[in-house]
């Protein structure tokens, strides 16, 4: 016998279900008066936030090409200088006018999600190389048993993307475009394909 390691096991994930909005965006689903506003709703920036304003919009598609109308999408990103607004950020202090996290339910008719944010700066990979600007995505919905993690990179960052240590490890290079948000003006479009020919790359983070 040896000593038991004594670690606990992570609680198993379960689907968020079709009514995830009751808990996460109650005002969106018509439950008013419990919370003043839905957590993570609204613009992520204010007048003092540093950085370039962008709008991220997109939809989540199932394996039959139908947009999900009951997904919940959360994003987490660095500020314009590449710092995260988190106690675990050790390199410096993030912009106090930028929280870095938001959530958006897909529109009940079109499935579209929208985030008003800033373009993130570059943060270092573990070995010090810089990662390209990116936004972390987490997608939950009915039919998704465990939240799916992906990253959105930017089409106007070709050089940084070419140096990115995460993109570099993707074996099938033809899949990389699934991680690139298409920038036109101030809008970045990022559609997510859960399954099939254009399946988005998802990460085990």
């Amino acid at each position: 016998m040896v000593q038991p390691l004594g670690y606990l096991k992570e609680t198993a994930s379960q689907t968020a279900g079709p009514y995830v909005h009751i808990g996460c965006t109650p005002n969106f689903t018509g439950i008013h008066g419990v919370f003043d506003a839905d957590l993570g709703s609204g613009s992520m920036v204010n007048d003092q936030t540093r950085g370039e304003r962008i709008t991220i919009r997109g939809r989540v598609f199932d394996g039959a090409g139908t947009p999900l109308k009951d997904a919940l999408v959360e994003i987490w990103q660095a500020d314009a200088d590449g710092f995260y607004n988190s106690p675990s950020e050790t390199r410096g202090k993030a912009d106090t006018n930028f929280f870095g996290w938001a959530r958006c339910p897909g529109d009940m008719d079109t499935g579209e999600f929208v985030f008003e944010t800033v373009k993130p700066g570059r943060a270092p990979f573990r070995d010090g190389r810089l990662m390209a600007p990116h936004v972390n995505f987490w997608i939950v919905a009915r039919g998704i048993n465990i939240g799916l993690n992906t990253r959105m990179y930017f089409s106007d960052e070709e050089q940084a993307n070419a140096e990115d240590p995460i993109l570099a490890r993707v074996e099938h290079k033809m899949r990389i475009p699934t991680l690139i948000g298409k920038r036109e003006g101030d809008t970045v479009t990022f559609d997510i394909y859960l399954q099939g020919e254009n399946e988005t790359i998802f990460f085990d983070i």
Binding site: D62, G143, L194, F202, F203
Partner: peptide
């Protein structure tokens, strides 16, 4: 519902 909402490729 998981049938059409499950990625078929391995997570990276």
């Amino acid at each position: 519902t998981s049938v059409l909402r499950s990625p078929q490729r391995a997570l990276i």
